[in-house]
Nucleic acid binder design. Structure first.
Lengths: 218, 218
DNA sequence: AAAATATTTTAGGAAAGCCTAAAAATAGCA
DNA sequence: TGCTATTTTTAGGCTTTCCTAAAATATTTT
């Protein structure tokens, strides 16, 4: 049984691994979990002894098969709890993450399974991220950044890259929600901002914004 | 913000205080939480510094007003989660306690409130114990032990004293559930075992059993 | 009331998880 | 390639929470 802290390390390494094919550096992990590199080194030794990661001094780490499975279980729990909070308890999509960070550490396979059933086997969390199934299989979709679309194209808003509370609140304020259809009407040449038709209103979205929004072409 | 461990001490002292009007001894706490008296002494000092308990060396402890309120919040969370597991996630009443022990430590007032609403403001947990309201008020009922009834009396099964898994499973096996009506038909003089009519079947309940079952006379 | 017993506290130590500062290894550049 | 800058690890320390063993205090018994 892993400690709370070990689970957080595992999750950090898992998320960092999605961004790159290389081994994950000590510094990157320290940055991710807001701690010091020396603390990370110490923990990596411990997790390597437990066969959760492959670790060679100075060479960075990667998850072992067991580590990967374990990380996926935690991600599964995190995202299922997010759905519960959003669908059943009236939480907004910018509030769910923080509480799911606590709930993801509850140990009970039956709880996870029953929660999944109770929520009717959801495929995505409130930010559009896929929920691994019981076996740890995760269905990644072909989603692309809104920024890559051309004028005239239409796509469905299916996810956010950065799900920080401020960004999510910004979208809420503009009534832009997961599932909405977006049509590009114009792209400003000088700052790459996009004019987008959403729910019959015109929005001008900054370069930063359109690089944070994932869509599926329709 | 209290630690996981401090919350467990608080809860232990709270439950022990329900059984007696005297101050709670170091040994009693150690026994309750399965630890050593010396560990308890150490923690009591810390919690006294935080004004959660009144503590005098060698004299035992009692909860302060703040400590009492805090303990009630934890009990509230514990019992609400038990209802959730039982009502929504198909857990049996002997399984809910263990997982609620983990869930009770999740920190979020909004979560507790929304859970309460979602469950439709339940008054009792699956073992019949009362759930404190948001303000920390707890409605104790006049429940008495089944053992105190006389032949011919009828009462409703409203709670258990010892909610250990084995005892709860024993009741399940005999189809005896919270809310059932019980009528005493005979009491054996030599071992105080009771012949009880429940759901049209006759049960012979041992002295231990009838001292673990709470009822309300009807 | 003194002696024996039981309870509680103190003293000292261990593991987990964090830290800072210094040393070692690696990477980047002239 | 050799030197500098960066990254990573080691060394040593701190806090929390637990432990055992011994000392201090309280309670019970005779």
């Amino acid at each position: 049984m892993l400690t709370h802290s070990e689970e957080n390390y595992l999750k950090a390494i898992f998320h960092l691994s999605l961004e790159t094919d290389e081994d994950i550096s000590t510094n990157a992990i320290a940055l991710k979990i807001n701690s010091q590199p020396s603390s990370v080194t110490e923990m990596l030794k411990k997790m390597s002894d437990k066969s959760m990661i492959s670790y060679q001094k100075y060479k960075g780490v990667s998850l072992t098969e067991v580590g990967q499975k374990t990380a996926l279980k935690i991600v599964r729990k995190h995202r299922l709890w997010e759905v519960f909070l959003f669908d059943k308890l009236n939480f907004s999509w910018d509030e769910v993450h923080e509480i799911a960070e606590q709930l993801e550490h509850i140990h009970s396979d039956k709880l996870t399974q029953e929660l999944d059933r109770f929520l009717d086997y959801p495929q995505h969390d409130p930010h559009g991220d896929p929920i691994p199934n019981r076996a740890g299989f995760i269905q990644y979709s072909e989603k692309i950044l809104l920024a890559t679309l051309q004028v005239g194209e239409t796509a469905r808003f299916v996810g956010v890259k950065d799900s920080s509370a401020v960004f999510l609140q910004y979208l809420d304020k503009r009534n832009i929600a997961l599932g909405d259809l977006l049509t590009i009407s114009f792209i400003e040449a000088f700052d790459q901002s996009m004019h987008v038709l959403i729910n019959d209103s015109n929005h001008i979205l900054s370069k930063q914004t359109i690089n944070n929004i994932y869509v599926l072409k329709v």
